[in-house]
């Protein structure tokens, strides 16, 4: 569904991604782990063309993207992204956040968009918050709105960059629950997270990234019980 081949990305002299290959199959849930600064966010941002790769190839749903020639907005619409700090639009109500892109990008009729928006809010358990502003929500509620907002564009893949890292511990569960439900419905997902319980339960594959390269890629059982790389072993000891 989303394939990265030999992705290189540098910021100035700092090479952050050093030839990453990642093949995410349709309906697959891949959890990305790695220490801070290893390049996890950068990789997700490259998949969404918020950062431009220096070399390599990105293919989405069988279509290899040439960022110079193509309309990046169209491609980004197919790849949903959920951020650590939610990034809800504070000047718009919850429902307006969700229906903004369908109306502006897809030119959907307002009535139709509202119906879609309410369905998605119901799905994340927040239909009663449709008319309030984000400032009135808890972190967990904000993140669930952000997920609904992404889903409104009917993306082919969803990228999550530490979606629960900014949350109080008691609010983490409600967000993971929504993500788990999405996974069960067959959404293709790439998730950066430190929630190992989630990784064990939901991931089809766990990938360890270290200093800009993938050093381990295995199903959860093998990843935790039989890691190949020394750094992975250290990492597992650290989080367990």
């Amino acid at each position: 569904m989303i394939v990265g081949k030999n992705i290189h990305k540098s910021f100035g002299d700092l090479e952050v991604l050093k030839g990453v290959d990642l093949h995410v199959k349709p309906q697959e849930v891949v959890v990305l782990v790695g220490v801070s600064g290893s390049g996890k966010s950068t990789l997700l941002r490259c998949f969404n063309f918020l950062e431009m790769i220096n070399s390599g190839e990105i293919t989405i749903d069988g279509h290899t993207i040439n960022p110079k020639k193509e309309d990046l907005a169209k491609i980004r619409a197919e790849v949903g992204m959920v951020f650590q700090h939610f990034n809800l639009f504070p000047h718009k109500s919850v429902l307006e956040n969700v229906i903004e892109a369908p109306i502006t990008v897809k030119k959907m009729k307002k009535e139709e968009a509202k119906k879609l928006g309410m369905n998605l809010l119901r799905k994340v358990g927040l239909e009663d918050k449709a008319d309030v502003y984000p400032s009135k929500l808890s972190g967990g509620q904000k993140q669930r709105v952000a997920i609904a907002r992404s889903l409104a564009m009917e993306p082919k893949v969803m990228l999550f960059d530490e979606p629960t890292s900014a949350l109080d511990p008691e609010l983490v569960g409600e967000v993971l629950q929504v993500m788990k439900q999405l996974a069960e419905e067959g959404m293709t997902m790439v998730v950066v997270t430190h929630e190992m319980k989630f990784a064990k339960e939901v991931a089809d594959r766990i990938i360890m990234i270290d200093q800009g390269t993938i050093i381990e890629s295995a199903d959860p059982k093998n990843f935790f019980e039989n890691p190949q790389n020394e750094r992975t072993k250290q990492f597992i000891q650290l989080v367990e």
Binding site: A77, V79, G80, M81, F83, E100, A101
Partner: peptide, 10 residues
């Protein structure tokens, strides 16, 4: 804010 908007396809 800009990134969230761009990521939605705007």
């Amino acid at each position: 804010q800009r990134e969230a908007s761009l990521s939605l396809g705007m």
